[in-house]
Write a protein that binds this DNA or RNA. Structure first.
Lengths: 351, 351
DNA sequence: ATCATGCGGGTCAAATTTAGGCCCATGATT
DNA sequence: AATCATGGGCCTAAATTTGACCCGCATGAT
């Protein structure tokens, strides 16, 4: 497949753009369906007329269905999206990018989704889908799965196909809830995921940043204690890598303190710990549940993060710990290599 | 690769034409190089201006080099042609066509080159190249290779890469020379091929259609006798399938007799025998060298024929004998299935 | 039930791209 | 020395694409 992609780039480079365009259109219709022409044009920043022409072709191919209430992707189109994703991976030359990251960070497996979450909302769904796929491939009955929160992680259960045979699996949040929107909290995600998997779940409602006395008393509650014990035994971790500032703000950290830890060079956060770009811990907050120290005891760690802006956080996290799988997107991957090597700079602006 | 082709046809069907066009252009430049714009436009029946635009793109991709004396294909372009051929095979859906022929005629291996020899001279070169490849893959030292004549067969030695280690191989013509242009005679082809392979060769200069007394006396000449004995021991046969009328005419058969055998339904000829479309012998001429009766004793038979017009001859031959490999082109293959099954009619006119 | 919104589709002129056709200087071949 | 085919330039016409509308109509909210 990679060779075919290279061949096409040589013989007809224009079609590469064409195929990518149609992929983006199809993907966005799928994400927002049913959606109208004008709305879609706004989302992907096209003008209406050309978009219309492209969609007409897609409709003629039976990939898109047009109704009064809007356009949607046909079942054939859905299948085409999936197959296209793999192909575009090679078309954009992401294969060498993935290998590069694997080498530089000693990662076993790097998965890159074409696109950039910062620019295209639908990419997060792709990341979630990849995460779901990977989780399924690693999951065995009896496993304890810990998940973290965030917008990307929230996509994972949505993309998880209903499964069965995982009655003995337990899904837990990695830590206590954050003060964020409920649907992005690890608790919600854990519950949703467990439901999709037909698995059990335990939730942990403990606010972060408690005083040590209050923390101690809550942690010693029998129910809470049991959940925490379960979390500590997690064998699979689905971890959404978070940026330092973003996470600090989400947790309601004082503006002054945020400034302080940023001055210390914090770029990434994980389980209440803040890391600088070297992967060293520069700040720690009180927290219950998993700790970064537990990472090395977890059999399978699936790290997820997308968007060029997340690259520094990814870099920091990878330097601290080598996950089993890194799932990211093109924007983050290219930026990551850029800030890491400085050498292989092949960023591309428009997509 | 086949799946990628199907995918591309779905998402961007226009690219099929585009890729095929550029392939044809590249192939024809390669065949006639160095050649000018206008001449090339005449050959492939394009108007000059669009051809110019396409070639400009090919040049920008570094596939074509333009000099004062004409255009030629770069080394990279040459490589691209080869890789494109395989890809276009799937792009045109020739994979199922080949399988179909294999099934219907019980052929072990069918190779189809995209294009139609009737319309495009360069296709014969492709056929020759495939024949050369196949011959090499079957050839072992000690083999006796018999070849027949014709325009397609004449391309085989030209496309044969210089080889060595075949000192013990002997190349012979399948039969005595025909009264045709010397470079298309089996004798010439056998000699050229032997030279390319670094092999030995024996030639046989005996006119066809001799009276029986004359024939007998010539055949008993010691030198001739030895060559004929060698031919009879051939282990590999490269056979260009011939149409009945064409071959009869090439041999200088009387116009009246030609009409007669055609009335008997003759559509194909091989080694002096004429077959109807059922594969039955309807006429036989005196001839020295191989006979159709010897076919079954030959280990490897590579049959070659291209062009939609050859389809009836191919059909007749395949019904008489199942060659090890059939090498043909798209035009012949599709027509063959059309006249055979009547069902799977997916002919296409323009290419 | 009514209304407003967003939908697909139609239309038409402007802008851009592509095609046609010709000439020209040049370098190779005869 | 002369002829020929070559690539490149150029300009006009044609075709296509783009931009900017408007319209009737379902649908969902009021």
């Amino acid at each position: 497949m990679e060779q075919v992609a290279e061949l096409l780039k040589k013989i007809a480079p224009e079609i590469v753009r064409e195929v990518e365009n149609r992929y983006t259109i199809l993907q966005n219709i799928y994400f927002y369906q049913p959606i109208g022409r004008r709305a879609l044009a706004g989302i992907i920043s096209w003008s209406e007329r050309p978009l219309r022409s492209e969609i007409k072709k897609l409709e003629e191919q039976g990939l898109v269905e047009i109704e009064q209430k809007g356009m949607k992707v046909s079942v054939e189109g859905e299948d085409t999206i999936n197959r296209l994703e793999d192909f575009i991976f090679y078309l954009r030359g992401l294969s060498p990018v993935a290998r590069n990251i694997e080498e530089k960070f000693g990662c076993r497996h790097v998965i890159i989704v074409p696109g950039d979450s910062d620019k295209d909302e639908t990419i997060k769904k792709q990341l979630g889908r990849e995460a779901a796929r990977n989780l399924l491939s690693f999951l065995k009955n009896g496993d304890i799965v810990a998940v973290t929160g965030g917008t990307t992680m929230a996509q994972v259960p949505h993309s998880m196909p209903p499964a069965s045979g995982f009655n003995e699996v337990v899904v837990v949040p990695g830590r206590g809830g954050l003060g964020e929107r409920v649907e992005l909290q690890s608790n919600s995600i854990a519950a949703e995921l467990a439901q999709k998997l037909g698995a059990q779940y335990r939730l942990l409602y403990v606010p972060d940043n408690l005083g040590s006395e209050a923390m101690e008393s809550i942690v010693n509650e029998p129910g809470i204690k049991e959940v925490i014990a379960t979390i500590r035994q997690a064998s699979i971790l689905l971890h959404g890598i978070g940026g330092a500032e973003e996470m600090a703000r989400r947790r309601g950290m004082a503006e002054q303190q945020i400034e302080e830890i940023l001055k210390k060079g914090a770029v990434a956060e994980a389980f209440g710990y803040y890391f600088n770009s070297e992967g060293s811990i520069v700040h720690a907050t009180t927290s219950v549940g998993l700790s970064v120290m537990d990472l090395k005891n977890i059999r399978t760690v699936i790290a997820i993060a997308g968007g060029a802006s997340k690259a520094p956080a990814i870099q920091a996290f990878l330097r601290y710990h080598r996950p089993t799988v890194l799932i990211t997107d093109e924007g983050a991957a290219r930026r990551l290599l850029y800030i890491e090597g400085g050498k292989r700079n092949d960023e591309q602006k428009d997509s």
